Every structure is written in C-alpha cells, then in structure tokens.
Computed example of a mutant assay.
Amino acid sequence: MAKRFPKGLLFFAIALALVGTATWQTWNWWLTTTAPIASSSTQAEAKPINLRVSPGTSAQEIGQDLAALGLIRSATAWSLWTRWTSFQDAQGGFQAGTYQLSKAQSLPEIASTIWTGKVTQQSFTIPEGWSIREMAQYFEQQGFFPAKDFLAAADQVSLAQYPWLPATSPTSEFPRLEGYLFPDTYQIASPVQPDAVIKQMLDRFEQVALPIYQQQKEKNLTLAQWVNLASIVETEAVVPEERNRIAGVFTNRLNKGMPLASDPTVEYAFGIKQTPDRPLLYREVETPHPYNTYINPGLPPAAIASPGKASLEATLNPENTDYLYFVARYDGTHVFSRTLAQHQSAQNAIHDQRDATKPSTQ
C-alpha cells in the first residue's frame, strides 16, 4: 500500500513554489526595470537627454520626470530603488542642476549621477577687448540668461569679497566692473547663473592679472589706472607686435599732458562702432563726454573693456619710443609718427589709398 504524502508538507511545498515564482517574477521585473533602456546594440545610438532638476524637487518628482523623458522604465522602480538602497541612509540628497543623461545608463547609474551632483558643464569664451555690455549680449544670445540680469549682477558684487575693486562706479551709465572680468574660456556648471559667471571671471582676474601688477616693483599707475590704460591698449592693438609700442605712445602722451585721442573711448562713450566705411565723424569726436579722450586730457573715468594678459603686461612695460601719434591702416597695422605734421601726412596717404581701392560707381 502506497504511503500518503503528508498534507502539511504538501501545503508547504506548494507555498514554497508560489513564493519562489513570485520572487522570481519580482526579481525579473526588478532587473528589467532598472536595466538600461537602450540595448547593447543601440547604446551607441542613445542620444544625450538633458534633465533639469530644480531646487527642492523631491525624489518622487525626479523619478516621474525621468520616466516622462524615457530615461527609466518605471517611476515605481525609481521610488523603490531610492528607498531600499544606500541612498536612504547616505548623507546629502539629489542635487539641483542640469544633467546630461542617456538611455544607455541604468537606473542606479542615473540615480548616482543626480545624487552626486555630476551636472552638465557648459563652456563660454570671452575675447579680449569686450565690454561688459558686449558680454551681456553674448550670454543672452547663447541662451544662458537675459542681458539685463548680467548687468544687474555686475552692479551687486560685494567689495568685501574683492577689496581691490574700485569702490564706486564713475557714472551710473557705465558698469563698475568694466575691465575686471577677465577674458578667457571657462567651464561652468549648468544651469548658468549671472552671479556665478561674474565670480568665476573676477576670480580669474585675481589669479592671473592681479599678481602681474603686484609683482611690479615701480608702480607709476594705480591698479585702476593700469586696467584703464590697458583696456585702451587692448582695443587699439590688433597686431600683437605693436602692443608695447602703442602702450609707449599713450604713456608719452600722458606724460606730456596731451589728450590720448583714442577712437575706442569715443565709441564706448556713445555706443557706436566705426568701420572702414563708417569712420568716426568730427561732430562725434568733438562732443563733450567724460570718456571722450579727444577732448579730455588724461585717462577716462574707468576702463572701456576687459584687457587680456598681453595688454596688461604691455601697459606696465611700454616701449621706450618718441612716437606721439599713430593711425590705423586697413590691415590691422598702424603708421607711427613723431610729429603732428607726419601724422596728418600718414592719415592723408591712408585715406587716399582707401579711396583708390574703392570700386568705381560709374
């Protein structure tokens, strides 16, 4: 006679099988929902997707955003992952910022990226000779932030943090930080904020430019005068080998009490930009303005642009020359003269050459 299988063991075996099946299904679901969406064959095709996490966004909201973007398979899996794993006990939290993520990343990889704050880095380049207003327009055109926000942030910098900055703005019309936002290429975390950009540029000035001035043994110019004059040299010099000579001309004119007669200061004053076909007009250079160095002897009230390292160094080491004048050719170089008569002769010759190369209208 066959022995009966004990009912208790039978029930236990059935229950064990059901639990095993449920466990396997749960495990299989877990592996599926936390795995990368892009398969191994399509990983190379997975394009970066930007996720913006605003300050104060909850973990649940992040999961919903990730699912909506198709970066994870399940917001529920995200919620379970952030509760069950070490994220629950670890110090810190999910960091605000813009992240560049991919469907080729698994859920744990995405979670780790946002938890550790590995935000997207963006770059921007400010050329030598740009004014703050040109920088503001650039940032707006790049889609970083409105130009007015940058100008407003520039007027709110704490002098306690940068005690070497000028104490006051020369006029309410022109920014106080003009000349001190160091031109360079920068990397900055996204989303880009105006105050963060300004801090980075002032820090670079402090690191690169300020030591050049501090290491100068004989200081004939104050820091503000140095930056001021260097900004004019920067906007006048096109060919690098002429930079020290141009600085020498301006130094000579300052020592003799002559007006600098620099076109860029007039352009800055009136917000205009001359071209070969549209030079400055006599009525413009004769219009009174604090920044018009055709009328006012000495330096303008403050800098007109951000000078680069080379112009800052040239201003402290001007060429020892007896030139007092220079006029631009149309190839970036200049003709230098010792006397006003020579200067006027050079101007006429350049104008005649320009007229001779213009296409005939007949």
Results as ranks from 00 to 15, higher is better:
27 W>S: 13
320 N>V: 15
101 L>F: 00
99 Y>M: 00
72 I>Y: 00
72 I>P: 00
84 W>R: 14
137 Q>H: 10
74 S>C: 07
346 A>L: 08
256 K>S: 10
340 L>V: 11
257 G>H: 03
51 L>H: 00
94 F>Y: 03
25 Q>E: 12
229 L>P: 04
76 T>A: 12
175 P>I: 03
308 G>N: 09
171 T>E: 03
182 F>I: 01
232 I>K: 05
127 P>C: 10
177 L>A: 10
18 L>Q: 06
204 R>K: 15
203 D>P: 12
275 T>S: 09
90 A>M: 15
161 Q>S: 13
157 V>N: 03
292 N>Y: 02
353 Q>D: 14
206 E>T: 15
131 S>F: 01
176 R>L: 14
191 P>E: 00
259 P>C: 05
324 L>F: 13
203 D>E: 12
173 E>T: 14
248 G>N: 04
107 L>H: 01
268 Y>S: 03
91 Q>P: 07
215 Q>T: 11
177 L>Y: 06
233 V>I: 10
291 Y>C: 02
138 Y>Q: 11
313 E>Y: 15
168 T>D: 06
309 K>P: 02
328 A>D: 09
83 R>A: 11
243 R>W: 05
13 A>S: 08
111 A>H: 01
310 A>M: 14
169 S>H: 05
199 K>E: 10
88 Q>M: 14
190 S>N: 07
73 R>I: 04
118 K>F: 05
324 L>I: 06
201 M>G: 06
134 E>G: 12
283 R>D: 08
96 A>D: 07
231 S>D: 10
164 W>F: 13
284 E>L: 06
127 P>Q: 11
3 K>N: 14
193 Q>F: 09
225 Q>C: 03
283 R>F: 08
115 W>E: 01
278 R>G: 05
71 L>I: 00
27 W>H: 12
110 I>Q: 03
305 A>D: 06
319 E>W: 03
234 E>F: 08
303 A>N: 08
330 Y>R: 15
174 F>P: 03
66 L>F: 00
303 A>C: 09
183 P>R: 10
338 R>P: 09
152 A>P: 00
175 P>L: 03
305 A>Q: 08
75 A>R: 10
253 R>M: 05
9 L>K: 14
93 G>Q: 09
197 V>F: 01
206 E>N: 12
308 G>Y: 05
188 I>Y: 02
145 F>Q: 00
352 D>R: 09
178 E>N: 07
40 S>M: 12
137 Q>P: 01
156 Q>G: 04
103 K>G: 13
231 S>G: 09
255 N>E: 15
199 K>H: 13
2 A>P: 14
133 R>N: 08
128 E>P: 10
161 Q>P: 07
337 S>L: 01
292 N>R: 00
300 P>I: 04
105 Q>F: 03
342 Q>N: 08
311 S>G: 02
279 P>F: 05
19 V>K: 08
158 S>Q: 09
12 F>M: 14
154 A>L: 02
244 N>Q: 14
29 W>D: 08
20 G>D: 09
88 Q>R: 15
124 F>G: 01
271 G>P: 03
91 Q>T: 15
337 S>K: 06
354 R>A: 11
250 F>L: 15
115 W>Y: 11
179 G>M: 07
243 R>T: 09
89 D>E: 15
278 R>H: 11
187 Q>L: 14
347 Q>M: 11
118 K>I: 01
69 L>C: 02
349 A>R: 04
187 Q>K: 09
271 G>V: 01
16 L>K: 10
8 G>V: 12
69 L>M: 07
62 I>L: 02
96 A>Q: 04
85 T>S: 13
